[in-house]
């Protein structure tokens, strides 16, 4: 099927197998290897990208179903040579080891900082909570890191948060 989508600002028109996920489209057809395949079932977050500005598991999105969308991957976070503040903070705080979950962590964090509303650890649902370390941990729990860099990831996000 023919679809068009914009990835990191670049338009693409591609003919895809309806079975192909957005993740496989990015990795196997468009040469964008930043989004990672860790589980292919939405259980690890390594494939996290932004679809129309919202973080999503690219492995669970069929490419045909995101026809017309704007997708941002980790490759699209930096402005030229200038790293996104979160990317710089991840390096500074050693917020990764093997680096395989990192693109997903970064895309997730970028979107998370713009997500309104409470989380599962918010006491008063009526108020938009402060982004405490506890809130960051809960909101970032969809991105597994087997190297165990969580404490550094939380520090990096807390520092880079506006």
């Amino acid at each position: 099927m023919d679809i068009t989508l914009k990835v990191n600002g670049t338009p693409h028109a591609v003919d895809v197998d309806p079975r192909m996920s957005l993740l496989d489209l990015l990795r196997e057809r468009l040469g964008l290897i930043g989004a990672k395949k860790g589980c292919d079932h939405g259980q690890c977050g390594a494939c996290t990208v932004l679809i129309d500005g919202r973080r999503a598991n690219a492995c669970l999105a069929l490419a045909v179903a995101v026809d017309g969308s704007e997708v941002t991957t980790v490759e699209g976070l930096a402005k030229g040579d200038d790293l996104h503040p979160l990317q710089a903070a991840f390096i500074e705080h050693d917020a990764f080891q093997c680096g395989y979950c990192t693109p997903g962590q970064l895309c997730s964090a970028v979107a998370m900082l713009g997500e309104p509303g409470p989380s599962a650890v918010t006491d008063d649902l009526a108020l938009d909570p402060e982004l405490t370390p506890e809130e960051i941990r809960e909101r970032m729990s969809g991105n597994l890191c087997r190297c165990g860099a969580y404490v550094n990831i939380v520090k990096a996000i807390a520092e880079a948060a506006p």
Binding site: I33, G34, A35, E75, L77, Q87, F96, T102, P103, L106
Partner: peptide, 11 residues
């Protein structure tokens, strides 16, 4: 670090 946070590191 840079290639890992920009998604350019090749696995």
């Amino acid at each position: 670090g840079r290639v890992k946070v920009t998604g350019l590191a090749t696995y």
